[in-house]
Write a protein that binds this DNA or RNA. Structure first.
Lengths: 296, 296
DNA sequence: GGATGACTTTTAATCGATAAAAAACAATTT
DNA sequence: AAATTGTTTTTTATCGATTAAAAGTCATCC
């Protein structure tokens, strides 16, 4: 059966929301909550019912009030709020990167299902979606093979990445001054400077900034296939960062400086400078990734 | 339960194979058949058992003989030899392109399952795989939306296609004379010429030749992400050809001539000529596709 | 006339079961 | 001993059922 992770996440969000209100304030309407929590009214009503059962909300119908001080404001544990499919991804990446990284390893649906405590259909669905990342391959009627987080994987990934990014960066550089992008880019530059100033303590925050920066560039000329490729990059980097902590602070500092040069180049509207800065940054990012790949 | 389409296809192939043998000849070994039919020995044994039940094979163990003349050499109907997953793709594309092409149309798993006579899991699996084609989008907990076979879809597709193809064509043009590719390219040129000579009657054969030609170019510098993008192109074109028969003969003739120019350019090793010919061909292919898209 | 309550209907996420196909193992035969 | 056949075990493809969530209906209330 379906898990109730949607309800639990909505419940936790509702608790957060209520705790920002004063005791006795009226509860927002069901429709309002539905929009704010991003779930249907059906689920909102379930949340309200639970909230009332634990005393956080009193009254009923049009007369509902909030009591945030209540000690009963428990939350559901984090991992009950994430749907099975998302958990599978996490566990699979962990399994792939930590335990079992050999290229050629057979991936067994039944085995994974048992390991992760889910039905085989959940695993199949995940593998089918994950296929596009280029790390696994299907043999009809005979399971999946892990192709390995190899050097050639990283090289192929970065060849495409460079093509796409150069094309987007050029498009950005030719955008009119009136475009919103310039303001957003300036804001990102400030974030980079702020992060650089506190690099010693905040260096983990770079991963997110990095992703937002490159995604901004790609929005200069939207293309669904490029966006979808960025999903791959994002996921690969996300897990790569989690996995390879070596030299993290220093690597990130270097990357921030490269980004700043890249941003300067974009503001200059000088295409060859943009290309230079873009290539320089990507090739250093590639080298970082290459250092943690295995053979071939 | 699993359908036995693998068995049925293998059986039909085995019948074909046997019919090329003389009456009384020994049946090839199980291992040989397993390789030739592309299935496991388990399935081969099942095929042999069936063949024997209908009198096409006599004897047992190491003493098995073949009787191709037998009238009992019936075959399973074509559509029982294709696995459910493949049938779903076919039916879905037909549904998409013929009946129901409006952008924004909601795609309903249950509804499709009923329409196609399969379980919902089969539909889900297909939609998850099909997602990467950029024609549908998932709304978590609320089904899928068809984004439409729109002008912007075709433009975005061709933007990527041009990037990839130019890059591969350049790589091909700089391959050493000793490379196998030149021989394969020459063979393809001959096929083009042969097809052109009989264009009036054989124009449908172009689709396959087209696909093989572009795939050959992409093998000049293999990259899994590009290969995977070619799968998208191939499928889109496959169904587009089936759907839009307008002017087919003439369109294909034009395309063949463009290919021939493109091949000349490649043999000349002159990069700017290659780029010119490549761009010209792709832009004419794009225009063809654009003519059958809907708004936006 | 939008918000609510109390339902009902429809749809998606997830599970577990079953038959087909593959793979592994064992017993022959040449 | 290598190739071939016979037998058993494991794994994939597919189904149908169940619950959560979304969507819809409609009467009622302020």
């Amino acid at each position: 059966m379906k898990t109730d992770s949607v309800f639990k996440r909505a419940f936790n969000d509702a608790v957060d929301l209520v705790s920002r209100l004063e005791d006795g304030e009226p509860l927002p309407s069901e429709n309002t909550l539905s929009i704010r929590l991003g779930v249907s009214r059906t689920t909102v009503r379930k949340v309200i019912a639970s909230l009332r059962a634990s005393g956080v909300v009193s009254g009923s119908g049009r007369e509902r009030n909030v009591h945030p001080a209540s000690e009963a404001m428990h939350r559901f544990p984090q991992d009950e709020t994430v749907p099975m499919a998302a958990q599978v991804e996490e566990r699979f990446m962990e399994w792939l990167l930590r335990d079992n990284a050999r290229p050629g390893t057979a991936i067994n649906e039944l085995d994974l299902a048992r390991k992760f405590g889910v039905a085989t259909t959940g695993i199949r669905e995940f593998l089918n979606r994950f296929q596009r990342f280029g790390l696994i391959e299907k043999r009809p009627n005979a399971g999946w093979v892990f192709k390995g987080f190899t050097t050639s994987f990283a090289l192929e990934l970065f060849e495409i990445r460079e093509m796409f990014e150069l094309r987007s960066a050029r498009a950005l550089a030719t955008l009119p001054d009136s475009s919103q992008h310039w303001r957003q880019l300036e804001a990102l530059r400030q974030e980079h400077l702020a992060l650089l100033a506190e690099i010693e303590t905040r260096y983990h925050d770079f991963s997110d900034l990095d992703s937002r920066f490159h995604r901004l560039i790609s929005t200069a000329a939207p293309n669904r296939f490029i966006d979808s490729f960025y999903d791959i990059i994002t996921v690969i980097f996300h897990y790569h960062y989690q996995w390879n902590k070596h030299d993290e602070r220093q690597r990130n500092e270097v990357a921030i400086r490269e980004h700043l040069t890249y941003i300067e180049a974009l503001f200059s509207r000088n295409i060859s400078m943009v290309e230079l800065a873009c290539r320089a940054h990507l090739s250093s990012a590639r080298d970082t990734l290459l250092r943690s790949t295995s053979g071939q």
